[in-house]
Each structure stands twice: as structure tokens, then as C-alpha cells.
């Protein structure tokens, strides 16, 4: 994608111009990577029901972004026993917004149409607020989403509060989920209680995002 198209696409998606500040000297511009403590990059994406979601609509609430690919063994690990669904239910029950994002390109592992995604969500008992479709990978690249899962927590002021792995156990075994420290749950618990978040970054693990 050339520079012009990149900027046009970004504007069409309502992306903040600041995201690209200072990055235009290269022939292939890269967005600024998100940083904990800095504003979370803004975006607009359409969900599997056809509803458009703008990140700024959720200002005042905690927001979780979950990059997902239903065919990745590490995503399967967290959904097989209902752990991710339970975490989504717990978080949204506390008032948080949970957005699952699919950035797999068409023809790549994990790519889903809206209908396929709706079927999967029903089958797996998703409790996320919405599943957003990002087949161009633009939002994934703006967030530098590298793995599935790759998690981001945004505070009510729109600042990035956590980014990294879902937990501290990089194994594909579903039975290991309960032995791990869940960084997303801890970040939400601490943040919602007004406490400093004890782990703000960690190395994400899993399959690469199939852009």
C-alpha cells in the first residue's frame, strides 16, 4: 500500500492523524506503535452484525481488545474450556467493553466472513461485546498486534493501560490456563479499583497474526 492510500484508508477509518506523525519519510510508512500510558490509537471497525464501532464511543469505560484467530491452537486453548468466554462475561459484567478483532487476511488462517463469525460466536458461546472484522489488517498493524491472542486494555480516559499476552504461561495446553496469572483480569481488577496496574506489558505469545 502506498503512502497516499495508507493515509486515505486511515482517514476513512477515522484514525487519529497523530498516529502517523513523524512516520512519513519512509517509502513504506509505519504507524507509531502504541505505548502504555499514551492514548490508544483510535479506529472505527464494523462488527459481524454490520454495526460500526468507534473506539471513542467507549470513552468513560474500560475497553479490552482481543486479537483472535479461531484456528490458532493458543486461541483454542483459551476457548476450549470456556476460560476466555468466562473472562469476557466477568469483564463485561463489570461494565467493560470487550472487542474481539479478527485481522486475518482473506484466504489466511482465521479469516472469517461475518456469517461464519456469527456462527462461531454462537457455537463457542462468546460473551464479548462484539467481534470486529479487520480483513485489511490496518487496525491490527496500527496496534502492532503480533499474535493471537494479543491483548490490550484501555482505561476510561482512552489511555493504553496494558498490552501483551493474556497470561504468563505460553503453552497450548488448555489445562494450563488455571495455573497462569491472567494479566488482563489483573489489569482490569487493579485499574477498576483505582490501584496502579502491577504488570503493564508482557511478551505476547501464540500464532502470528495472519495479515
Amino acid at each position: 500500500m502506498n503512502k497516499f492510500l495508507m493515509i486515505t484508508s486511515a482517514c476513512a477509518l477515522g484514525l487519529g492523524a497523530a498516529v502517523f506523525a513523524g512516520q512519513m519519510q519512509d517509502s513504506q510508512p509505519k504507524p507509531l506503535t502504541p505505548k502504555v500510558g499514551s492514548p490508544a490509537p483510535e479506529f472505527t471497525l464494523t462488527d459481524t452484525k454490520g454495526t460500526s464501532h468507534d473506539l471513542t464511543d467507549f470513552r468513560g469505560k474500560w475497553v479490552v481488545l482481543e486479537w483472535t484467530n479461531h484456528q490458532c491452537p493458543f486461541v483454542v486453548k483459551h476457548y476450549k474450556n470456556g476460560d476466555m468466554q468466562n473472562l469476557q462475561k466477568w469483564a463485561t459484567g463489570k461494565g467493560a467493553i470487550w472487542l474481539s478483532i479478527v485481522s486475518s487476511g482473506e484466504g489466511k488462517q482465521g479469516y472469517v466472513t461475518a456469517d461464519q463469525a456469527n456462527g462461531l460466536m454462537k457455537e463457542k458461546g462468546f460473551n464479548a461485546t462484539a467481534m470486529l472484522l479487520d480483513p485489511t489488517g490496518l487496525v491490527g498493524k496500527i496496534y502492532a498486534a503480533k499474535t493471537t491472542p494479543h491483548m490490550f486494555v484501555i482505561n476510561p480516559e482512552g489511555m493504553l493501560a496494558y498490552m501483551g499476552g493474556i497470561d504468563d504461561n505460553p503453552s497450548p495446553n488448555p489445562d494450563d490456563v488455571k495455573k497462569a496469572r491472567n494479566h488482563v483480569k489483573m489489569a482490569l481488577e487493579e485499574g477498576m479499583a483505582g490501584k496502579p496496574i502491577s504488570v503493564t506489558t508482557s511478551q505476547p505469545y501464540g500464532c502470528s497474526v495472519k495479515y
Binding site: 490458532c72 491452537p73 488462517q109 497450548p172 495472519k210
Partner: peptide
């Protein structure tokens, strides 16, 4: 040995 092997997709 528990390993993740990847090509265009990944398998544990």
C-alpha cells in the same frame, strides 16, 4: 518435546 510448528498456520 512440546513445540509449536508453523508455516502459514501453526500447530502445537
Amino acid at each position: 518435546a512440546s513445540v509449536l510448528v508453523c508455516k502459514t498456520e501453526c500447530i502445537a
